[in-house]
Amino acid sequence: MITELPEQLLAQAEFLIRNSDSNEANVRRAVSTAYYALFHLLIRDSVANWKHDEDRARLARTFDHRRMRDASAAILKEIGRVETQTASVDDPESASRFRLSTVAEAFLDLQQARHKADYDVAETFQAIDAATNVSQARLTLITWNEVGDEPLAQRYLYSLLFKDKS
């Protein structure tokens, strides 16, 4: 498996947005690539939990955009309103919940933006909008590194692939 793919995709998205030169295709590709950076990051960290390295690439192919979207919406709803935005020594759990919220929120946002970038040619794609998407992806990769090992984040990873029976 290419383990650095998320970081490489994000670097490519940032390159495209910096060098877009008013070329709308570059702007649209930047947004799409930013989404795939997060998509592959979550898949990479999910399949890393699989014990047998030789099966991870095959397992990675089973992830589905819609399932990941539903899991992200579900964890956002479960976490609920988070009152604090910054990490706090008094309430680290709340800070973790906020961080995970921003990751799930970013997944939904970037996935929707990617669909607009790839398929919706009805109106010009705004470069400033694309810049906020790429920046959101960068912040999300940083945030994920801070929260990814937390139990709730690990449960989120599980839910990206598996749905519990009700």
Binding site: K77, R81, V82, E83, L108, D109, Q112, Q126, D129
Partner: peptide
């Protein structure tokens, strides 16, 4: 995430500039 939370009413909010 803190003030609006349309997720609480089953709707996600997408932001554009």
């Amino acid at each position: 995430l803190r003030l609006v939370r349309t997720d609480e009413i089953g709707l996600h909010s997408f932001l554009n500039f």
